[in-house]
């Protein structure tokens, strides 16, 4: 079953999170433990603790390609 971290909309890279939220790095940090696994869902524009994916899930390109490659090819 897919989860948010495999979704195209989920941004969990600390550098990107700091860029998406100007001013966050002034008195906090996305590289610290207090962030836990918090990510930004860019589709819903909200902070999330990644869990099971929602109806708007879209696989990241790399994952989608890997999933397609794993499907047996019948001639």
């Amino acid at each position: 079953m897919s989860d948010c971290t495999q979704c195209l909309h989920c941004e969990d890279d600390p550098g990107s999170i700091e860029r998406l939220l100007p001013g966050m790095n002034i008195l906090s940090s996305a590289y610290g433990n207090t962030r836990g696994i918090t990510a930004i869902c860019q589709h819903h524009d909200m902070f999330i603790s990644p869990g099971l994916a929602c109806a708007d899930f879209r696989a990241r390109p790399g994952l989608a390609a890997a999933a397609a490659a794993s499907v047996p090819q019948h001639r």
Partner: peptide, 15 residues
């Protein structure tokens, strides 16, 4: 936020 429903199961992030 009321229109959005995300299944919030146990986080499965590899991290």
């Amino acid at each position: 936020s009321k229109e959005v429903t995300i299944e919030t199961g146990v986080p499965v992030s590899a991290r």
